[in-house]
Design a protein around this nucleic acid. Structure first.
Length: 288
DNA sequence: CATTGACCTGTACAT
DNA sequence: CTGCGCAGGTCAATG
């Protein structure tokens, strides 16, 4: 497929927004909606195939948000020296359009865990509760379906080494099982209402709700704040991070979260979520 | 509201 | 080798 606007596959899949992609022999392999996707970029050509069933160009365009006017978005969010450097370094990074269920479960798992551990948890869950898909002799496992997870006991879910998150996953799965439209009917809500609704789910606080709003509900103004983003925002504001007496960073409170994320929306505008992704990748990259 | 502590797990890093 | 801090937070209990 010929790319019509600028895009960088490596940045997009490496920046930490998705957990189920890996690169091998020059190809990216990912598990998306029960299909194995194999993708490679060569300049302005994007090569891809999918198993067990092929996917259309339209699916790829939607998944990688190639329909976003990235040039315009980057121009709008380019408001300070820090993000300017991030944009220059990682130009072509796009937000991935994830499915709601997978995204929600993934980010509930992502709380208080490192990326390596998150990937391990999601792999374990998929191997335990997903469907096996064999491609070229290699076994992949699709993401657990609602029903499978809703039926599973908390103790069985714990066998996936998800720790205390097991009861959240179980509870969310049961709620969605009982009300299959629970998540999709939120699509009509505006960002703030959506965020509050998501937060009513167990294990979903402001950070997870913002991630799901941004990655799965097209709310590009959502600005998830974690410890890293918090540091950059204070840096950009020219202020110091609140610290305890012994000099360590104070934990982020809900009110501080609200304050910082509305600052980010005022500062970067309606595409603040894109700014967040660029800043996150930038602040975490070794060579700044 | 702000503060505090507990919470699963695996890896990093110092002792 | 053993121990301890921390990682893309959230929740519940207190003042």
């Amino acid at each position: 497929m010929k790319l019509e606007s600028h895009f960088n596959l490596d940045y997009t899949l490496s920046c930490g927004q998705v957990f189920r992609w890996g690169k091998a022999n020059g190809w990216w392999y990912g598990i998306v909606d029960g299909s194995i996707l194999k993708v490679r970029q060569e300049g302005d050509e994007l090569h891809f195939s999918a198993y067990p069933e092929d996917v259309e160009d339209e699916f790829i365009k939607s998944y990688f948000r190639l329909d976003d006017d990235l040039t315009n978005i980057l121009r709008i969010i380019n408001k300070d020296a820090t993000i300017n450097k991030a944009i220059q370094q990682f130009n072509g990074l796009r937000i991935v359009r994830q499915s709601v269920w997978d995204c929600l479960i993934s980010y509930v798992c992502a709380t208080n865990a490192s990326i390596a551990i998150i990937e391990s948890m999601l792999r374990n869950l998929s191997e335990m509760f997903g469907d096996e898909i064999v491609v070229n002799g290699k076994a992949f496992f699709s993401f657990p379906k609602v029903k499978k997870l809703a039926k599973a006991s908390v103790n069985k879910i714990k066998l996936c080494n998800v720790g205390y998150r097991a009861r959240f996953l179980s509870e969310i799965a049961k709620q969605v099982e009982n009300n299959p439209n629970l998540l999709e009917e939120l699509r009509n809500s505006d960002y703030l209402k959506l965020r509050d609704e998501l937060r009513s789910l167990p294990g979903v606080g402001p950070k997870v709700a913002d991630c799901v709003s941004l990655f799965a509900f097209d709310k590009l103004e959502a600005f998830p704040i974690d410890v890293w983003i918090r540091r950059v925002i204070y840096q950009i504001k020219g202020a110091a991070i609140p610290r305890t007496k012994d000099g360590t960073e104070k934990p982020l409170t809900v009110s501080e979260y609200t304050e910082l994320s509305s600052f980010a929306r005022r500062h970067y505008g309606k595409f603040a979520g894109y700014a967040q992704e660029y800043l996150f990748y930038y602040i975490r990259s070794k060579d700044r």
